[in-house]
């Protein structure tokens, strides 16, 4: 069996740790976004703060690394799991009681989340941090683009005033909820923070965290969609 030198539990641990770190990032990102509703100028201040500075770039690189590891191991594990299941599949499959749809489809949900992320990076990051970096590297960037690199509010208004984008983003967030609803509890299980007392609590906590993140994000989308 392809082990990549790591045991199955270690690989799952990598999934858990990278996933967990990404959840913390999402919490941070969501709380930052909410500022865009309270005070758009404040939001822009944060955007400026997180521009092409060394710390922001290190954090971005770190985030990218987390994503890449999370992704690679998702595929490695899923491939092994597919092989372990065997060539013959059951003719009749019925849902097992108490087993969530999300838990059985994390790879697919994750892929959808990833697609959404691509769109999101195109909408925002490609207009904000990226041009700033390019500019610093001495590559020519249009001036009107450069003028807006720290104006996150502009891009928020721009994107979510478009109904299609808002709907796409809300659908994306729904998938994110499913991914997190299973993911957060799953992190706890994989790193071993589960026992017979905490089992149900962990499930609930996972869903609350997922809901919190998604609600924060979605409220920004809906707010600007409605006022746009």
């Amino acid at each position: 069996m392809a082990n990549n030198g790591l045991s199955s539990i270690t690989k799952k641990l990598i999934m858990a740790v990278t996933g967990g770190a990404l959840v913390f990032f999402l919490l941070f990102h969501a709380s930052m976004n909410i500022v865009a509703i309270i005070k758009p100028e404040g939001y822009n201040k944060i955007c400026e703060f997180l521009g092409a500075n060394w710390y922001a770039l290190i954090a971005t690189a770190g985030l990218a690394a987390l994503m890449v590891f999370h992704l690679i191991y998702a595929f490695v594990l899923s491939f092994q799991n597919y092989r372990a299941r065997g060539k013959q599949r059951y003719a009749v499959v019925e849902k097992q009681e108490g087993v969530s749809w999300a838990s059985k489809n994390m790879l697919v949900i994750g892929a959808i989340v990833l697609l959404g992320l691509g769109l999101h990076l195109f909408n925002f990051w490609a207009n904000m941090q990226l041009p700033e970096v390019l500019h610093k590297l001495g590559i020519h960037v249009e001036e009107d683009v450069m003028a807006l690199v720290a104006d996150g509010s502009h891009y928020i208004v721009n994107t979510f005033s478009c109904t299609a984008y808002s709907i796409i983003y809300l659908v994306w967030l729904a998938f994110l909820w499913f991914h997190l609803a299973h993911g957060v509890a799953s992190v706890m299980q994989s790193i071993g923070w589960n026992n017979h007392v905490w089992q149900n609590r962990i499930e609930v906590i996972g869903k609350i965290i997922a809901a919190l993140i998604v609600v924060l994000f979605a409220s920004v989308v809906i707010y600007y969609w409605l006022i746009g």
Partner: peptide, 29 residues
């Protein structure tokens, strides 16, 4: 060649003896 656990807990749902997945957490820990 067994697969990797992805915490769906289908095992616990179908176990005829009701063995709990908290055992898996204990082993991970």
């Amino acid at each position: 060649g067994f697969g990797n656990c992805s915490n769906t807990y289908a095992c616990m749902a179908e176990c005829p003896k009701g063995i709990s997945v908290t055992n898996i957490a204990r082993m991970n820990r």
